[in-house]
């Protein structure tokens, strides 16, 4: 069992008046053995949340627990190793001066594998697990392709015997044919090892393919979360609908996405009052002036105790995404 739980997590960059809240009051649960897909545009705080979970960034509020044990703070390395992370860029996530075997072997838990022979055998097993030829153990990263490097990075994460893995945009630097291999691997690891994952990506189709649960992040907050088929099939938050409508290959291209198109991304130094999405919202006060609530009241104050939650005062009833256009 391994449940990764974020409770009221906030992460702040900088101090005093220039402080930016990159992540604000995030509540999120990655249940044991499930893949939770986290989507949102760049700057929405997805990576910040992951980096905070593995202790690379300090929390300014809240706590992150794995099976009830707090991960960040006084807890030592032992429990932190239960959570591993794979990074976006396979070209900077491996030490260029260490062989593949050395990189993976370094992450093995001390005391679990003794002796050079046993370590090599274990590294070989891990490489096999991520579909790499163990004969490449002595290769340097520069001899590998991007997809192979990303699989080495996964093997390194698995070497620590984590209970949950954070995958931060692990396929966005890869070619499409290589991406398919890595996605298949993610699925296999989840289904056959029961590995829990927080899978971060801006690509909705990719997230939909691997995830059981989905959370949507906007301007540092989770605005919608629920089972994948619910969120993709019956999106409730207008931002989620905007995201889904933007997926390439969905209907005619019309250069008339009036509100969202011309609005600037949220300035993290000066976030909008009330609902953070209101300056861009297609169902908000910009087009429907009577909806003043959005300007003043933060929808996050209203907490739902439903399986499928959306942080919107006017979250849509359950209507299939295809019938629910952007322009209502």
């Amino acid at each position: 069992m391994s449940e990764l739980r974020f409770e009221g997590v906030s992460v702040t960059h900088g101090w005093g008046r220039r402080a930016v809240r990159a992540v604000e009051s995030v509540d999120l649960v990655v249940p044991s053995g499930t893949v939770l897909g986290l989507v949102g545009e760049s700057g929405s705080g997805k990576s910040t949340l992951a980096r905070a979970a593995v202790g690379l960034l300090p929390l300014s509020a809240g706590r992150i627990t794995l099976d009830g044990d707090p991960l960040v703070g006084r807890a030592g390395h032992a429990s932190r190793r239960d959570l591993q992370m794979v990074f976006q860029d396979p070209y900077s996530s491996l030490d260029p001066r260490m062989t593949v075997g050395e990189s993976v072997s370094e992450a093995l838990r001390r005391g679990t594998v003794r002796g050079a022979q046993a370590r090599r055998a274990e590294v070989a097993r891990l490489l096999e697990l991520v579909d790499l030829d163990p004969g490449r153990m002595d290769a340097l990263p520069e001899e590998l392709s991007g997809g192979q490097r990303q699989r080495v990075a996964l093997a390194r994460a698995l070497a620590a015997q984590p209970r949950t893995v954070l995958a931060d945009e692990i396929t966005s630097a890869l070619d499409v044919s290589v991406q398919a291999r890595v996605l298949n691997l993610v699925r296999d690891l989840n289904r056959q090892l029961g590995l829990g994952m927080l899978f971060i990506s801006h690509n909705l189709a990719v997230v939909r393919y691997v995830s059981d649960l989905v959370a949507v992040m906007y301007a540092g907050r989770i605005v919608e979360q629920g089972p994948a088929e619910q969120v993709f099939g019956f999106p409730r938050h207008p931002y989620t609908r905007t995201l889904l409508d933007a997926v390439p290959g969905r209907g005619e291209l019309a250069d008339a996405v009036p509100v969202v198109a011309l609005s600037e991304p949220v300035d993290p130094h000066d976030p909008p009052t009330g609902c953070r999405f209101h300056p861009s919202c297609p169902v908000g006060p910009l087009l429907r002036p009577e909806r003043t609530e959005c300007l003043t009241r933060d929808p996050l104050e209203v907490v739902w105790q439903r399986e499928h939650r959306a942080a919107c005062h006017f979250s849509a009833p359950a209507v299939p995404a295809s019938q629910e256009g952007l322009h209502r």
Binding site: L83, M85, S92, R109, A157, A159, A160
Partner: peptide, 13 residues
């Protein structure tokens, strides 16, 4: 600041 240092840190090095 590079990712491989972060990765090693996460691995408990």
């Amino acid at each position: 600041d590079r990712d491989f240092v972060s990765a090693a840190r996460i691995a408990g090095v």
